[in-house]
Design a protein around this nucleic acid. Structure first.
Length: 832
RNA sequence: GCCCCCUUGGCGAAAUUGGUAGACGCACGGCACUUAAAAUGCCGAGCCUUCGGGCGUCCCGGUUCGAGUCCGGGAGGGGGCACCA
């Protein structure tokens, strides 16, 4: 009987559903395990990347259940965001109905793949019973001083008509629209992520189950720089300014100072100087796009002002306004030390400023040419610092500055506070009211959720909430006078910063129950794309800490284990005229790639991430209908290590389908027989142990290879009790990966209950060791022969046997080895 | 520019602490079964070879009895950050 995946998939999916097999029990006495994949944005259809992501999590979840754990494996929807508004504009549908229809469609697709999910905990961030609790948490953070409003220059996307976070500006362009971002002054809501900068950085050190790459990216993003602030005073007029430097040791090498174009002093000077005004305008035009920066020359405008060197009152340095100094970083002012900073050197050469070496490595005290020296060494030309190492000199300068009150040691961060205001409709309304008399007033919690109005229009750009006729007109909760509701909504990254807590516990009257949430958290294994390495993961780490600070939960790091999976890729194809061709538009004829319709030759391109623009996507839907869920799941786990890219191929899925059938034939053809097959018993137990280890470490491709080997061994073995046992056992071993086939086989073999509820097979440790081993015999490290001996054969015997091996005798030709290296159970190396 | 990662057959890849490189899969070739095809099964396969062996894990060098694995230098590919003081 052939395996019928369509019937089997539907049958068992229904059984799991009816029996609520994968419902997580908060009250279970079993050890708990929280397995989570990053929840999807409901774009309308799942793609291969989702399939791969959720299959990995599913295998781990099912495996841990079999190992006796109570597993929480939930699914939900990151349902707010701009695509819904774009759809509303293009198709005249309401963002809500568009989103909810997408959720239904994608949910059906996920169910079709047989994922072991606890659907009773499903949530969508666009529903008031989610975002209302988010509003409540936001108010809690506000009351704890972690939320504030600030009039600030923001990144304004002129196409999407919204403010973007720094993280959403890529090369000076909006991450979605690609439009050149402008600077605008607006009153914005901010979250004080910088309050936690030090702790977020230190916490990375505890995340030993995260990829090094992600920790490093976060570390760079937080960007801690130790240095000092130094005050410079003007010559001949009062006042001055502070600069920030990470190299205070080089202070005697300073030959100029520079401030940003938007520095207050520059602004003030510009009011009396049209030339400076023009220069400032020019700086602004240069923009922040990467291409501009690459080509932009270091330019400065000499203000004519001079400042006094803090350590030498007779030394006066010029003050420039310079295009390379950023107001947003440090103090918006720098001291220029050309000898030891490349940028300063370029600037100094251009404006003919002195270049004085103050750090010299051993044996090189020469002139600085075109390259600044940034390495280690001892201080020279630096008075009291001469002879000190760099670090020693930094400390000495800071100590002296603090004593003389012209500077102090300080730390500067690259990380900025998180701007969460969005002038958009489809997001969580920020629960505040602006009153002329009372100022900014939080909406009383009894009035939450602040829900979005349904009657909105998208025919003109801008924020529909702001132009809604009635929504924003409310009375002040404090004084009762007419007031204005906040019309900004929250960045959707706020929604995804706590959904994993709501999954763990979702009471109706508050965001979560502390004890229940703490019983599941932190997430033991979190799986998702590396594209979230910085934003989502950093925000979630911050939000969790913020909730801890306000006393709502005692968890600091939300995700103990993080795994970032590779992408699903596919070959690309091009027509002779250069346009991209979809996979189903080409075929192989006589070994040549041609266009199906016309027979013209097509050119295969690189294997790349599946994308609409390259037209190399493969929709999982029809594939699942053709081969069944198990073959698709098996292929997703095979061959490529999960952290690397997986090349999708027609032959690959065919191969997976063949294996599913091969397994089925094995189960279907089981023969009960007498007798032991020691060899097969060993193979079985090694596989049980090996697969368990591989799955737990997410080495799915290795587990798959081991299961192929076992299958091959069973096929080759003669009927015996061992063989029948191996077949019964392999059903459990493959159950996490191909669950439908496993249930079908489990039932066919007459086992009780569901294989989903079965225990992982026990390992007999005695069967993990071989009693015979193959020993390599090398001469000068080169393999010449092998020996098969009993495990544990002693050194002397191995040496004797090796010397007697035919190939060895011939090679040595009577010579006596100078040295013999024996590694028991491994090899003998004869050094001639 | 700075920081990080990767590189093993035609392809995806495996390989405890340095110890038989290429398991397993895909593609390929041969054979069997079949009227035929599909499906299935069996066999083969890193490259070269005078059949003794030689060469092989991006390249060059080093450490070692022994290096895919460790160290130094370089090349190619990918990723992150980016006038960050």
């Amino acid at each position: 009987m052939r395996f019928n995946p369509l019937a089997a998939d539907a049958r068992w999916q229904q059984v799991w559903d009816e029996r609520q097999t994968f419902r997580a029990d908060d009250a279970s006495p079993k050890p708990k395990s929280y397995v989570l994949e990053m929840f999807p944005y409901p774009s309308g259809r799942i793609h291969m990347g989702h399939v791969r992501n959720y299959t990995m999590g599913d295998v781990l979840a099912r495996f841990r259940r079999m190992r006796g754990m109570e597993v929480l494996h939930p699914m939900g929807w990151d349902a707010f965001g701009m695509p819904a508004e774009n759809a509303a504009m293009e198709r005249k549908v309401h963002p809500g109905s568009w989103t909810r229809a997408n959720i239904e469609a994608m949910k059906a697709q996920l169910k079709r793949l047989g994922f072991a999910l606890d659907w009773s905990r499903e949530l969508a961030t666009c529903e008031p019973d989610y975002y209302g609790h988010e509003q409540s948490l936001f108010i809690d953070l506000y009351e704890a001083g972690l939320v504030y409003r600030k009039e600030s220059a923001v990144n304004w996307d002129p196409v999407d008509q919204t403010v973007l976070a720094n993280e959403q500006v890529i090369d000076g362009k909006g991450w979605r629209s690609g439009a050149l971002v402008e600077k605008r002054k607006l009153s914005q809501w901010f979250l004080k992520i910088t309050d936690f900068a030090d702790d977020l950085l230190a916490g990375l050190g505890t995340l030993d189950q995260w990829p090094d790459k992600v920790r490093l990216m976060q570390e760079n993003w937080i960007g801690k720089s130790r240095g000092m602030r130094i005050t410079f005073h003007f010559v001949g007029r009062p006042g001055g300014f502070e600069v920030f430097s990470t190299r205070p040791d080089t202070i005697y090498g300073a030959s100029f100072t520079a401030i940003a174009a938007d520095h207050p002093i520059a602004q003030e000077l510009a009011t009396h100087s049209p030339q400076l005004q023009a220069f400032i305008e020019e700086c602004k035009r240069t923009g922040t796009a990467a291409a501009d920066i690459e080509t932009a020359e270091k330019k400065g405008f000499d203000t004519g002002l001079r400042v006094t060197h803090p350590l030498d009152p007779n030394l006066h340095l010029p003050l420039y306004v310079a295009n390379f100094v950023l107001m947003e970083y440090g103090t918006g002012a720098v001291m220029g030390v050309p000898a030891h900073d490349q940028r300063d050197l370029d600037f100094a050469r251009k404006y003919d400023l002195p270049v004085v070496r103050v750090v010299a490595p051993d044996g090189d005290h020469g002139e600085i040419g075109t390259e600044a020296y940034t390495g280690p060494g001892r201080l020279v030309n630096s008075h009291f610092l001469n002879g000190m190492e760099v670090e020693e000199a930094k400390a000495a300068v800071i100590a002296r500055a603090q004593h003389e009150h012209w500077g102090k040691g300080t730390t500067v961060w690259r990380l900025r506070d998180w701007g969460v205001s969005r002038q958009r409709y489809w997001g969580t309304p920020i629960p505040f009211i602006h009153c002329e008399g009372c100022g900014v007033v939080p909406v009383p919690k009894s009035q939450l959720p602040v829900t979005l109005p349904d009657d909105v229009s998208f025919d003109i750009p801008g924020n529909p909430l702001d132009r809604h006729p009635t929504w924003k007109h409310v009375d002040c909760p404090k004084c009762g006078k007419p007031a204005r509701r906040e019309t900004d909504t929250l960045d959707t990254f706020v929604d995804s910063s706590w959904y994993f807590i709501r999954f763990a516990s979702q009471p109706g009257d508050r965001p979560f129950d502390r004890a229940t949430a703490e019983s599941w958290l932190p997430v033991g294994q979190y799986i998702g794309g590396v594209e979230h390495a910085i934003l989502h993961l950093l925000y979630a780490r911050f939000w969790t800490r913020a909730l801890q600070r306000v006393g709502l939960i005692d968890v600091k790091e939300p995700f103990t284990g993080l795994f970032t999976q590779g992408m699903v890729t596919h070959e690309t194809y091009k027509a002779p005229d250069g346009r991209w061709l979809a996979p189903d538009e080409v075929e192989k004829r006589d070994g040549r790639l041609v266009i199906v319709e016309t027979g013209e030759a097509a050119t295969p391109g690189r294997v790349e991430k599946m994308s609409k623009s390259k037209r190399n996507t493969v929709d999982p839907g029809p594939i699942v209908d053709q081969y069944g869920a198990d073959a698709v799941r098996w292929f997703m786990l095979s061959d490529s290590p999960p952290e690397r890219d997986l090349p999708w191929s027609e032959s690959g899925i065919e191969g997976a389908w063949r294996f599913v059938n091969r397994l089925w034939r094995q189960i279907d053809g089981i023969e009960d027989a007498e007798g032991e097959d020691r060899e097969l018993d060993r193979k079985l137990h090694k596989t049980i142990a090996g697969v368990a280890e591989d799955v737990e470490s997410l080495g799915f491709n290795k587990a798959v290879a081991k299961l192929y080997e076992l299958t091959g061994a069973i096929e080759k073995a003669k009927p015996s009790a061992s063989r029948a046992n191996a077949i019964r056992t392999i059903v459990r071993l493959v159950a996490p990966m191909v669950p439908h086939l496993a249930e079908e086989g489990w039932a066919k073999l007459g086992q009780d209950g569901l294989v989903a509820d079965a225990a992982w097979p026990d390992v007999d440790p005695a069967l993990l060791v071989d009693d015979e081993v193959t020993i390599a015999v090398q001469i000068n490290g080169k393999l010449r022969d092998t020996l098969t001996v009993a495990k544990g054969t002693d050194r002397a015997t191995l040496e004797t046997l090796a010397l007697a091996a035919p190939n060895v005798v011939r090679q040595l030709d009577g010579a006596v080895p100078k040295k013999v290296i024996v590694v028991p159970d491994r090899l003998v190396n004869l050094v001639a």
